[in-house]
Design a protein around this nucleic acid. Structure first.
Length: 573
RNA sequence: GAUCCGUUAGCUCAGCAGGUAGAGCAUUUGCCUUUUAAGCAAAGGGUCCCGAGUUCGAGCCUCGGACGGAUCACCA
């Protein structure tokens, strides 16, 4: 492994700690009785609070001035300044703990525990006056140094690639990232509370499914050895949740990880979280009200107001949200009434509007295309789009006033779909026909049309009460609520192409061409990363470089001779 | 999948008509007992993403590749 100079320094410090009898990775519990945030919030100079604190965390900065030092310690709640004075942590004659351990062997990133009392410095900063330091864990890699003053961040650790691949570093160094994920947790808690308060049952259903139903998307396939069958990672949990409604639960919900084997971009991660809920005896009108109430409540819980800044827009989640039918929306933005058009006429309209189509698209898909192209981006404020054509909603009940439509809504916010809901189809005969229609579409080449789940049909045949169901994208909701421009910012470990490790050569690679052990240790550091690098150089140049390195580092080995080097180069060929 | 942009020290980023690779922070050493992104001073630190080519000479130019970002396409 090639180490940078800073990593070498830290490894040496580690060895020295051990020599001093200090275990850099101790086993024992370190008892903590206070946290940074708590001290910052509650300490006042007149009280006798916090006079014997014990705090543990990472050293995030140090300012050493002779026999006294300031530093910042970061624990799970935030940062607090520490003041370390030599004669306070070394009460006897031996000043090693300060001079050597604290000043030289500890680094930014190391975990320590400190005991002491809290006071306020002349500069007015709440600070722990340290009387005792315990090394808790040595850090061998230097952290990025991010500094901040008056809300302005300097030298931010900002490369998305590194931040997502090494999220642990991102959350050490970027406080706002920790806040985003804290908000995510709070949002989910708030939604769960809302649903629990209604008395619905939180359930878990299979992620490995023999038939990937409930949505139209390409699934990931895996294989079960014992059963010797393919299994799919779920694209939705809808059909399982509806089985539970058949089973007699009044309301069920699940926070579900779903998996879709499709493109990745800033709105799509292959695995994402959806909350789906189903409630018996309700319809989509009720569900609209419930959805807007739930989102309003979550927003207020998170922000104390219904208004949220998202990019350049302020979005107001105050219920009720606007409602418009999909055909009405199309008429609004294109001036064309498409409600009575057949497939060919729709194709004509698409052409006229400059929307690409292909033969696999049925009537439903064509309407969806027009809406997606001409209408969807316009709905910035929360808007329910309702009453979708029957062809694009195979699990949804037909509209009570128009059998060509369904009782479905999608919630659009900031020009994107956030939630999707139905008055669920519970007529088993109609459901079977709709599945069969999907199969016909599949044969036309729509690779997202559904498989038929016969057990689900069997369940419906036992009878499912009238039910309304809704799915809401948690990642997208978190993006809105935290004003983040991409899903990758709200998922701890977004999917990335695997890191490609470059072949790293070591001393053994040099030994194979005849470099003696003593030199093989040093040759990489002397500037030859791999054996082939020797081939491009004249032997005399190599000799100079190696012997120069020997002199500079005062190596206790004999100077290298030119004929040796010539032999290595011959061995290379 | 297409187009554009990026990849240089641990981190953030400069660099040029092709001529010995730079800054700030971090690191090391010395001085300094209350500092506030940054005390003062000095020093060390690089596979300029990888590979091929052009050239006397490539971080820079050409071609190919890797990875990332943005936009578009795809997308119930």
């Amino acid at each position: 492994m090639q180490l940078s100079d800073q990593e070498i320094v830290r490894r040496k410090a580690l060895e020295e700690l051990v020599k001093l009898g200090i275990n850099p990775y101790p086993q024992a519990e370190y008892k903590v009785n206070a946290y940074a945030k708590e001290i910052q919030e509650k300490f006042t100079e007149n009280d006798n609070h916090f006079q014997e604190v014990s705090v543990a965390g990472r050293i995030m900065s140090r300012r050493i001035m002779g026999a006294a030092s300031f530093g910042e310690l970061m624990d799970s709640t935030g940062r607090i300044q520490i003041y370390v004075k030599r004669d306070e942590i070394c009460t006897g004659k031996d000043k090693t703990m300060y001079n050597t351990v604290f000043k030289r062997l500890l680094d930014i990133g190391d975990f320590i525990g400190v005991k002491g009392y809290v006071f306020v410095t002349k500069m007015g900063e709440i600070t722990i006056h340290v009387k005792d330091i315990t090394v808790l864990s040595k850090s061998l890699r230097p952290l990025p140094i991010v500094k901040e003053k008056d809300g302005k961040v300097y030298d931010a650790f900002s490369d998305p690639d590194q931040r997502y691949r090494q999220r642990y570093v991102d959350i050490i160094v970027n406080e706002s990232v920790r806040e985003t994920f804290a908000k995510r947790a709070q949002l989910i808690r708030s939604m769960r509370d809302f649903l629990n308060n209604k008395g619905y049952l939180e359930v878990e259903t299979p992620i490995l499914q023999p038939i990937p139903g409930g949505a139209a998307a390409r699934p990931f396939v895996t294989h079960h050895n014992a059963l010797n069958i393919p299994l799919y990672l779920r694209i939705a949990n809808e059909l399982y949740l509806k089985r539970l409604i058949v089973g007699g639960y009044e309301g069920v919900f699940e926070f579900a990880k779903d998996f879709r084997n499709e493109g990745m971009d800033r709105f799509h991660n292959p695995e994402f979280t959806q909350m789906e809920m189903y409630v018996a005896y309700k319809d989509y009108l009720w569900m609209m009200k419930t959805t807007e109430q739930m989102i309003e409540k979550i927003t207020v819980n998170l922000h104390g107001t219904t208004k949220v800044q998202v990019g350049d827009n302020v979005i107001d989640f105050k219920a009720p949200f606007n409602r418009i039918s999909i055909l009405g929306a199309i008429e609004q933005y294109t001036g064309i009434d498409v409600s009575d058009l057949n497939e060919n006429q729709l194709r004509e309209v698409c052409k006229q509007l400059n929307i690409g189509t292909d033969v696999s698209m049925g009537k439903g898909k064509l309407i969806d295309e027009i809406f997606g192209e001409k209408c969807e981006p316009n709905y910035i404020q929360p808007t329910f789009i309702t009453d979708y054509p029957v062809e694009m909603s195979p699990l949804c009940k037909r509209h009570r006033n128009n059998p060509a439509l369904t009782e479905r809504f999608e919630l659009m916010v900031n020009g994107k779909e956030l939630a999707n809901a139905y008055t669920e189809l519970n007529d088993p005969i109609d459901q079977r026909l709709r599945f069969e229609e999907q199969i016909r579409l599949a044969e036309k080449g729509d690779n997202e049309a559904m498989y038929i789940d016969y057990d689900f049909l069997r369940a419906l045949e036992y009878g499912m009460p009238p039910t309304s169901g809704m799915g809401i994208g948690i990642d997208r909701l978190v993006m809105l609520m935290t004003n983040q421009p991409s899903v990758q910012e709200v998922i701890f470990f977004p999917q990335m192409r695997p890191e490609k490790l470059m072949k790293v050569y070591n001393s053994d690679d040099f030994k194979t061409i005849g470099v003696p052990d003593l030199w093989a240790e040093h040759i990489i550091n002397a500037g030859f990363a791999k054996p082939d690098d020797l081939a491009g150089e004249k032997p005399t140049v190599i000799q100079q470089k190696l012997n120069g390195y020997r002199k500079k580092n005062k190596l206790q080995i004999a100077a290298i001779q030119i004929d040796e080097i010539t032999k290595w180069i011959e061995n290379l060929k």
